[in-house]
C-alpha cells in the first residue's frame, strides 16, 4: 500500500514539474497589412459628401516605414526592409506587406507606423518602378490621383503629392483596445495599417462634426482644365469660404485649401479599420 502510494506520489510530482516546465511563452506571428478600404479600392460615394460630389481614386501611393509592435515594458518587433511604396488602389482586399515571426503571443499595446517621405533608399512594395520614381522625385509620403464627379458640375481630376513625415503611434482598435493581440500558433495574426482616404476631404481640422466637401476644391480649378492642382488650391484663401466650413481649430498657418488638405494628410492613418492612433509630425 505504502509502496504504491510512493510511486503514485513520485509520478504526480514529475507530472507537475513537466506541466510547469512546458508552460513557456507561446509565440505567434503578425501578418502586417495595408489597406485603403473600399473608399480607395472602389470609390467614395456621393452619399458620403455633403455637397453631392463623389470621388474615385486611380492611384493611392503611400510610403510606409517604421512599423513596430511593442509591449510596454516588454518585447518589441519591427517590420524590416525600410520604407516601401504601396499602391492601395488595386488592393481590393487588405494587402500583405510583411510578416513578423517569432512574436510573443500576447497583447502588444504599442503599435506604431510612419507615413514618411520617400527617399533614395526606398523600395517598391506592390507599386511600380515608375510609382517609386514619382514618390522619390517629389519626396512624397502620400500621392493620390483621382476624379471627382458631380451630377450638375461635371468632373474634376486631381493629382496631389504630399511631403512631410507623420508618425502614428499608440494605436487602438475600434473597440478602444490598445495595440494588437497576437495569438499563438501557425496562423498569423493580421494587423492592418488602414488609410482613410475620405479624410482628405473633411472640412474641419478639429471638429467632430466635420463634413466631406469637394465644392470648394472643384471651384479652385482656375484654369478650367478640369484638373485641380495643389497650386490651384493654394490660391483659395479660407477666408473666401463660409465661416462654418474649413475650420482650423488650433492649427497654425493653415490659410489656403492647399494648407488644409496637406494638414488633413496627418489624419489618414488608422489601425485595423476604425482604430485610432496618436499622430505626430517628425
Amino acid at each position: 500500500m505504502m509502496k504504491t502510494s510512493k510511486k503514485w506520489l513520485q509520478s504526480g510530482c514529475v507530472a507537475l514539474l513537466v506541466g510547469l516546465g512546458a508552460c513557456g511563452a507561446p509565440v505567434g506571428s503578425i501578418d502586417v497589412r495595408a489597406w485603403g478600404e473600399e473608399f480607395v479600392a472602389n470609390e467614395i460615394p456621393a452619399s458620403e459628401f455633403e455637397d453631392g460630389w463623389g470621388v474615385q481614386f486611380s492611384k493611392f501611393l503611400v510610403h510606409v516605414s517604421g512599423v513596430r509592435f511593442a509591449a510596454t515594458g516588454g518585447p518589441s518587433y519591427s517590420l524590416t526592409g525600410g520604407g516601401r511604396v504601396f499602391d492601395l488602389k488595386p488592393a481590393a482586399q487588405a494587402l500583405s506587406i510583411g510578416t513578423i515571426s517569432m512574436v510573443e503571443a500576447r497583447r502588444l499595446d504599442d503599435v506604431r507606423f510612419e507615413l514618411s517621405e520617400a527617399t533614395a533608399s526606398s523600395t517598391v512594395g506592390n507599386a511600380s518602378a515608375s510609382d517609386l520614381m514619382v514618390m522619390q522625385g517629389g519626396r512624397y509620403a502620400l500621392y493620390v490621383e483621382g476624379t471627382a464627379s458631380h451630377p450638375m458640375r461635371g468632373t474634376r481630376s486631381f493629382r496631389w503629392g504630399f511631403t512631410g513625415n507623420t508618425r502614428f503611434s499608440n494605436c487602438r482598435d475600434a473597440s478602444s483596445q490598445p495595440g494588437l493581440v497576437v495569438t499563438s500558433g501557425t496562423a498569423a495574426t493580421p494587423g492592418q495599417l488602414t488609410f482613410h482616404a475620405d479624410h482628405l476631404f473633411y472640412d474641419g481640422l478639429q471638429n467632430p462634426e466635420a463634413k466631406l466637401r469637394f465644392d470648394a476644391i472643384a471651384s479652385a480649378d482656375r484654369n478650367m482644365d478640369m484638373m485641380v492642382t495643389l497650386d490651384e488650391l493654394a490660391t483659395v484663401d479660407l477666408t473666401t469660404l463660409p465661416t462654418g466650413q474649413y475650420t482650423t481649430g488650433s492649427a497654425r498657418n493653415v490659410n489656403t485649401l492647399r494648407d488644409y488638405v496637406t494638414a488633413l494628410v496627418t489624419t489618414v492613418g488608422h489601425w485595423n479599420g476604425e482604430g485610432h492612433c496618436d499622430e505626430a509630425h517628425f
Binding site: S169, N170, Q206, G249, S250, A251, T266, D278, E279, A280
Partner: peptide, 12 residues
C-alpha cells in the same frame, strides 16, 4: 491633453 497638429509626440 496634447493639442492636435503640433510637431511633437502626443502622450497618453
Amino acid at each position: 491633453g496634447e493639442p492636435v497638429f503640433e510637431a511633437r509626440l502626443r502622450q497618453r
